[in-house]
Design a protein around this nucleic acid. Structure first.
Lengths: 249, 249
DNA sequence: GGAATAGTGTCTTTTAGACATTATGTA
DNA sequence: TACATAATGTCTAAAAGACACTATTCC
């Protein structure tokens, strides 16, 4: 039967006790590294481990709102507005040792931010370079390593065919800033001139501000400044270099 | 706090009564039309309306297994193996008039099948051409119209850069059969020769069987038969014609 | 034979990739 | 001045799109 027809003889107190939570993967670029926001767990299980921010969904609360609320409560990071999208739902029996937990993960892209501080239930909160996590220097609670891997793959894929790369930089940015986003997220080097040609020939990706200014990241000649254009999807796409090389910075 | 830390004083019977369900969007191509499998609801709310197959997740059951189980129970469609992927989770408060329902939708691609029959809780079960649903001839229960729209967009997008189009045809197929899949899903016409060139130049998409046979769909000269290759992602992608024209068959 | 599809080949346009060269800012 | 990045331009290779022409099968 399609969803939401209660089993015969439905009684809330007899209903299987699913817990419903939202987790949030906050990605940003700090010091030339794709980074993720983690909190240190204060309670068992996994007390002392690092984990994604997240928490229980209130009975009348949209899951996306839970994600935004927990981000503020646990990391004191208050951002006026930011892109937040659903990643996917993780609900394997046994992913939490105590009970059946259905957790929907959300994904946020933010420009570089002031360092977060710990909030309510989290002992500490800070950004980690992804490189350090995949190198095994940090292990995450629950299945959060899988969630993070899915989030990174989503980010790598989405900047190909949407304008979301611009969500990683502050509003007036140079083409070099934008190129550095692609390089950090993909872990590759791109030819500056070819990149600029592609971005400028993609309608609606960026809009020139007709002024010049310094890059947000590096020195050298100052370039023309741009802001985000009207487009949300890219035609044509900015595709990842084909496959194999992993040129690092 | 990261997921799965029970509220202080946790007591299952006091926990907010979330219902957790799985819905399944079964897409196939019938009579040259992209089609979806629906069941007629036997119970309130929306009794008599058409809806996606789906139902409650058991407390120890993976959500994907629920989707497969409900498909058999409600439509008597038993398929040995088929591609099933998570689409996204729908949990807005109020999407079900009676209680808070968190529903994860799954997406399946199948070749044309024998007509389903109604199962357990469904009055009837049958395939509908998408064209008839979007034309407003059928209205769906709950937010299933939104789920279906998301599913179709996922399918249209995924056949661009994966080999999933082959999941819509039976194993020995001609390049014309495969092209018809793209044409039905995208609602466009493709140049047969250019399409064949692209498919054959994409490593691992199809493997020649070195025999000839009739098309699964139409008459004319019989062509060479192929089976699915080893690849799952396509390099380069088979991109949708740019934008505007909606050439119909 | 007529109609429909399969298959081969060619031509043009567009886009991507590599890279050389000059310009302009900072340390 | 040394160095890093910005910006422009050129050449080549790859891919997409349009389309002409021949081949084969069913009716």
């Amino acid at each position: 039967m399609p969803d939401a027809v209660a089993p015969a003889g439905y009684d809330p107190s007899a209903y299987p006790p699913f817990a419903v939570t939202s987790d949030i993967v906050v990605l940003t670029i700090r010091g030339g590294e794709l980074s993720v926001l983690l909190v240190e767990r204060g309670n068992e299980p996994y007390a002392g481990s690092w984990a994604l921010p997240g928490g229980f969904v209130d009975i009348d609360e949209p899951g996306e709102e839970t994600a935004r609320r927990e981000l503020v409560e646990e990391t004191r990071l208050e951002i006026s507005s930011y892109h937040l999208e659903q990643l996917r739902t993780y609900s394997a029996p046994g992913r939490d040792p105590r009970m059946r937990v259905v957790s929907t993960a959300y994904l946020a892209f933010l420009p570089d931010l002031p360092a977060p501080v710990a909030g309510d239930d989290a002992a500490r909160a800070r950004f980690f370079a992804l490189r350090d996590i995949t190198a095994g220097e940090v292990t995450l609670a629950f299945d959060h390593e899988q969630i993070l891997a899915d989030a990174v793959e989503r980010a790598r894929s989405k900047i190909e065919y949407t304008t979301l790369a611009a969500a990683f930089v502050e509003k007036p940015f140079t083409l070099g800033d934008l190129r550095r986003v692609y390089e950090c997220v993909w872990g590759t080097r791109l030819h500056p001139s070819n990149f600029a040609r592609k971005v400028l020939s993609t309608p609606g990706f960026v809009r020139s501000l007709d002024v010049r200014g310094a890059s947000q990241f590096e020195g050298g000649r100052v370039g023309a400044l741009y802001e985000t254009g009207d487009a949300t999807v890219l035609h044509p796409a900015i595709l990842r270099p084909t496959g194999d090389e992993e040129d690092e910075r």
